[in-house]
Lab assay of single mutants.
Amino acid sequence: MTLTLTVPPGAKVRVRITNENGETTEIEVEPGETVTITLPAGSTVRVEVEVVDPDGRKRTETFTLKP
């Protein structure tokens, strides 16, 4: 399973991925970048995406991906 994120110009994104064992991976994606994350097959993962807009506003979306 893959997750692809494209960050709009001016925004910053931090992604936290937590697996079933509670292990967390965190990455930051710079403005204008596209990143593809390969998620472990057969695992349920929690993905938290934090977006910081150019004006400093933050918003966070959290979702769970199941196999």
Rank of each mutant, 00 (worst) to 15 (best):
E28P: 12
K66E: 13
L5M: 12
N19T: 11
G22Y: 08
P54G: 03
T44H: 06
R46D: 04
A41G: 10
I27C: 11
A41E: 06
V7D: 02
V51N: 01
P9C: 07
E28F: 03
G56M: 00
E48Y: 01
R14N: 11
G10K: 11
P40C: 15
K12D: 14
P54F: 10
P31R: 12
V47G: 08
V45E: 02
D53S: 03
V15D: 00
G32K: 14
R46N: 04
L3R: 02
R46P: 01
L65G: 00
E50N: 02
G42D: 12
P8H: 13
N21I: 12
L5W: 12
I27H: 11
R57L: 03
I17C: 12
V15K: 01
N21P: 12
T36L: 13
V52C: 06
P9A: 08
D53T: 10
E28L: 02
V49C: 07
T18C: 09
T60C: 13
L65M: 13
G42H: 12
P8D: 14
T2K: 08
P31G: 09
K58N: 01
L3G: 03
V7Q: 04
E61S: 04
V49G: 00
L5K: 01
E61H: 15
I37F: 11
V49K: 01
M1N: 04
R16T: 04
E30V: 13
V35Y: 13
G32I: 15
G32Y: 12
K58H: 03
K66C: 15
V35D: 04
G56W: 00
L3W: 10
D53R: 01
E26H: 06
T24L: 05
F63I: 14
V15N: 00
T34K: 13
I17E: 12
L3P: 11
T60K: 03
I17A: 15
L3A: 09
R46V: 12
V29I: 04
V13L: 02
K66F: 15
K58C: 07
T4I: 12
G10F: 03
E23H: 06
E28V: 02
V45D: 03
P67L: 15
F63Q: 01
G32A: 14
V51I: 12
I37N: 14
E30I: 14
E61R: 04
T44G: 04
P9L: 05
E23L: 06
A11P: 02
A41D: 08
G56H: 00
R16S: 05
V51C: 05
P67K: 01
P31Q: 08
A11T: 03
G42P: 10
L3E: 02
F63S: 01
T60N: 01
V47P: 00
I17W: 13
E23Y: 10
E28N: 09
R59A: 01
L3F: 06
T64E: 15
T44I: 11
E50P: 00
V45H: 07
A11G: 08
T34Y: 14
R14M: 13
P40L: 14
A11N: 03
D53W: 14
E61P: 01
P67E: 05
T60P: 00
V29R: 10
L39G: 14
T24C: 12
E33T: 12
V13R: 00
P54S: 09
L39M: 11
R16H: 05
K12F: 08
S43R: 15
T36D: 08
E26L: 04
E48A: 03
V35I: 08
N21E: 07
G22N: 13
T4P: 09
T34R: 10
V47H: 00
T18M: 06
I27F: 10
T34L: 14
R16W: 13
E20A: 05
R16A: 06
T64Q: 03
E30C: 11
T24I: 06
V15E: 00
T2W: 14
T24R: 07
K58Q: 02
D55S: 03
P40N: 11
T44F: 13
G42A: 13
E48D: 07
T34F: 13
G22F: 08
N21F: 06
K12M: 09
E30D: 04
T36K: 07
K66D: 14
E28T: 04
V51G: 00
T6R: 06
K58M: 04
E33G: 13
V45I: 08
K12N: 12
T36M: 11
T34W: 15
M1I: 10
E26N: 06
I37S: 11
R57D: 01
P8Y: 13
G32E: 13
T38P: 08
V7H: 11
R16F: 06
R14K: 08
V45Y: 14
T2L: 05
V52I: 09
D55H: 02
L5D: 02
T25S: 06
E33W: 08
M1K: 02
K58Y: 02
T34G: 11
G42C: 15
D55T: 02
I27D: 09
K58L: 05
K58D: 00
G42Q: 14
R14Y: 11
T60S: 01
E30P: 06
T4L: 09
G32M: 13
V51W: 15
E50R: 02
L5G: 07
L5N: 04
P8K: 11
E50I: 04
V13I: 03
P54L: 06
L3K: 02
G10H: 04
E48H: 02
K66N: 13
V35C: 05
T2R: 06
V15F: 03
V15Q: 02
K12W: 05
L65R: 00
V13D: 03
V29W: 15
E50S: 04
E48G: 01
V29E: 15
G56P: 00
E28H: 07
V13G: 05
G42M: 11
T60W: 11
K66G: 15
I37T: 12
E33V: 08
E26C: 04
R46C: 05
L39V: 04
E23K: 06
T18Q: 09
R16Y: 05
V45S: 03
A41K: 09
G42F: 11
T34P: 12
T25Y: 09
L39K: 04
T25Q: 11
R46M: 12
E33H: 10
T18V: 11
P31K: 12
E50Y: 01
E28W: 02
T2F: 13
T60F: 05
I17N: 09
N19E: 08
R46S: 04
E20G: 03
V52T: 15
L3D: 01
V51S: 04
T64A: 01
T44V: 09
E30S: 05
K12P: 03
N21Y: 09
V47A: 02
E30A: 06
P8T: 14
R46F: 10
A41P: 04
V29Q: 14
R59W: 15
N21A: 09
M1F: 13
P54T: 04
V45W: 13
V45G: 09
N21M: 08
L5A: 07
T44E: 12
M1Q: 03
L39P: 11
P40E: 12
T2V: 06
V49M: 04
N21H: 09
P40K: 12
E26S: 05
L39Y: 07
T4E: 05
F63V: 12
P67V: 15
G42I: 13
T24E: 08
V49F: 03
V15T: 10
R59E: 01
P8N: 12
